[in-house]
């Protein structure tokens, strides 16, 4: 069989498709719950995106390497075990080296295992493909997820706290308490508004790419 070069066009497509055309969050509508919970501020959103990308990529590679050894009857359980292992490791590392962020993420790091993107990609891709393409596919989907998280987190932190990554963007003097007329929007830090923002992103994406609209 012809050896596929590491960065061939096919592999690159695995990386770029999930960023737009087959974005796991806005097109496949997977992994929405954590997208709502951790995007209150930008920093936890980015940390979460990195964590999910690591989990998807590494678990895809591991599952791809094991794919010929797994008995079919316990396939799903093996997936669960491998993903849980990675998720717990990520959680422990965050608590050791990024404590403040891990407090903001709280239970949602542990809930990465329930993120449908992870198991979805393993089932759909890693179990039937070689390790390197699986790795690239994992990274691509993680990045697609991360892209949406960053966009939503950006809007939510800016409008809800007036800061970005903890740095004040909207000057304090604008606020009503300091004599101005502005006030932070309390609704955007609640999950329902995050869902509405996600809906608006999907709306914009579908207006620009008519192929995505179901007939």
């Amino acid at each position: 069989m012809e050896k596929e070069s590491l960065f061939s066009a096919k592999n690159l497509k695995l990386l770029t498709d999930p960023l737009g055309r087959s974005n796991p969050v806005t097109v496949l509508v997977l992994g929405v719950c954590s997208a709502l919970a951790v995007t209150v501020k930008l920093e936890p959103a980015v940390v979460m995106a990195i964590s999910v990308t690591v989990v998807i990529a590494v678990s895809s590679v591991v599952m791809s390497l094991l794919r010929n050894t797994i008995p079919n009857r316990i396939r799903i359980i093996v997936q669960l075990v491998v993903v849980s292992l990675l998720v717990i490791l990520v959680d422990q590392v965050l608590r050791a080296f990024a404590y403040d962020v891990s407090k903001q993420l709280s239970v949602f790091v542990g809930l990465i295992i329930t993120n449908c993107i992870v198991m979805g990609r393993i089932e759909a891709f890693a179990l039937g493909n070689k390790p390197w393409p699986s790795f690239v596919d994992g990274i691509g989907n993680g990045l697609g997820y991360g892209l949406i998280l960053v966009v939503v987190g950006f809007v939510r932190e800016l409008l809800g706290s007036g800061t970005l990554w903890g740095y004040r963007i909207i000057p304090s003097s604008f606020y009503i308490a300091n004599g101005g007329v502005y006030e932070n929007n309390g609704l955007v830090i609640l999950p329902p508004m995050a869902l509405i923002l996600l809906g608006i992103i999907i709306w914009i994406q579908r207006s620009r790419n008519k192929n995505l609209v179901e007939s």
């Binding site: 075990v81 292992l85 717990i88 490791l89 422990q92 590392v93 608590r95 050791a96 404590y99």
Partner: peptide
């Protein structure tokens, strides 16, 4: 899996406690 997790938890515990 159990071995990996135990090793990781033991190694990381002092850091977490400190935090």
């Amino acid at each position: 899996v159990a071995a990996t997790l135990s090793i990781a938890a033991t190694l990381l515990k002092p850091f977490q406690q400190k935090n």
